[in-house]
C-alpha cells in the first residue's frame, strides 16, 4: 500500500491513508491519464485496488471516476478518439500491453452499467450469453448449471425460476440490474466493475443490490462508482475521491468519511461542493 506514494505526479499529490487490514491488491493503476481528443479527462491516477473487497469511487459529476472505471476493462477503447496513458496491471500484467486480448480481459473483468441493460432475450439467454461466447459450458446441463448458479449468486433465482424463458426486459428495474450482475458473474470474472449500478433504481431495489454487493465481496474484487456517499459508506471498504479529473484522496472508507485529511474531500462529503 505504501509503494505508490512516491509515484504521484509532481504537479498533483494524492493524499493516501494506508489500511493495515486491507487484502492484498492484484489490481493496480499507475499514473493513468485519459484524453478525449485534445481534452484531458483524467490526470495521473495511481491507486491499488485490494481483492475480495469493495472499493468505491466518489466525486462530483464529470470528475473522471467513470472514465477511470472504464479504463480498467478497456471499455474506453470503444469511444472514438479516447486515448489512455499510464498503466493498469492485474497480477503484474499490463492491461494496455499490445499482446493482451481485450476480449479475454473483459471476461476476467466484468462490468455492470448505470442503466440496467438486459439483452432483448429471455432471462436464461441473458445469463447464458457470456458462457456461450466463451465456450465455458461443455453440455446443455453444464450451461444450465452455470446459469442457475449465477442467478443464485445474484439473488435473483428464487424470483425468476418459473419464468426463465420469458424476456429479461420484462423484469422490474432492480431485477434487471441483478440480471445484469448474474450475466457478469456467469463468465467467471475476478473483478466486477459497477458504474453507478443503483442510480436508476428505487430505494428498496437499491438496498437489495447493496446487500448483494456485500455478499459478492467474499469472492470478487468489486469496484463501484457511485454518486451517493451513503452508498459508498455502506458498501465499500476503500474509498477514492475524485475531483476535476484528479484523484484527491484515497483510503479506508471509515477514515475518509470520518476523518478526511484533504479539505476538498471534506467539503464534498459534507455537501459543500459537488
Amino acid at each position: 500500500m505504501s509503494a505508490t506514494e512516491t509515484q504521484a505526479s509532481p504537479v498533483h499529490q494524492t493524499v493516501r491513508t494506508p489500511d493495515p487490514n486491507a487484502h492484498p491488491a492484484r489490481l493496480k493503476a499507475d499514473a493513468v491519464s485519459v484524453f478525449y481528443g485534445e481534452k484531458q479527462a483524467l490526470f495521473d491516477v495511481s491507486i491499488d485496488l485490494p481483492e475480495k473487497s469493495v472499493s468505491a469511487f466518489i466525486g462530483p459529476s464529470g470528475c473522471g471516476k467513470s472514465t477511470f472505471l472504464r479504463c480498467i476493462n478497456r471499455m474506453n477503447d470503444t469511444i472514438e478518439g479516447a486515448r489512455v496513458a499510464g498503466k493498469i496491471t492485474l497480477d503484474d500484467h499490463n492491461l494496455y500491453d499490445q499482446s493482451l486480448d481485450v476480449v479475454e480481459l473483459r471476461a476476467r473483468i466484468g462490468m455492470v452499467f448505470q442503466k440496467p441493460n438486459p439483452f432483448p432475450k429471455s432471462i436464461f439467454e441473458n445469463v447464458a450469453y457470456g458462457p456461450k461466447i466463451h465456450g465455458l459450458a461443455r453440455s446443455k446441463a453444464d450451461l444450465e448449471e452455470i446459469v442457475i448458479t449465477s442467478l443464485q449468486k445474484a439473488g435473483l433465482f428464487e424470483e425468476v425460476k418459473d419464468r426463465l424463458h420469458q424476456p429479461g426486459t420484462g423484469l422490474s428495474g432492480g431485477q434487471q440490474q441483478r440480471l445484469c450482475i448474474a450475466r457478469a458473474i456467469a463468465v467467471g470474472p475476478e473483478v466486477i466493475l459497477m458504474d453507478e449500478p443503483c442510480s436508476a433504481l428505487d430505494p428498496i431495489a437499491t438496498a437489495i443490490i447493496e446487500e448483494l454487493i456485500d455478499e459478492l465481496r467474499s469472492n470478487y474484487t468489486i469496484i463501484i462508482v457511485t454518486h451517493s456517499m451513503q452508498q459508498a459508506a455502506r458498501v465499500s471498504q476503500k474509498t477514492a475521491f475524485f475531483h476535476l479529473g484528479k484523484l484527491i484522496e484515497e483510503g479506508p472508507t471509515e477514515e475518509i468519511f470520518t476523518n478526511p485529511r484533504e479539505k476538498r474531500t471534506q467539503d464534498y462529503i459534507t455537501g459543500r461542493i459537488g
Binding site: F113, N117, K121, G130, I133
Partner: peptide, 26 residues
C-alpha cells in the same frame, strides 16, 4: 441503444459476436 452494445462488449464478446447475437436480433 449503445447500452446493449456496451453490455455485450463488457462481457468479452467480440464486435461481430455482438452484432450477430445482440444487435441484429434487437
Amino acid at each position: 441503444p449503445q447500452s446493449l452494445r456496451d453490455g455485450s462488449l463488457g462481457l468479452g464478446a467480440t464486435q461481430s459476436e455482438t452484432i450477430r447475437r445482440v444487435i441484429l436480433p434487437a
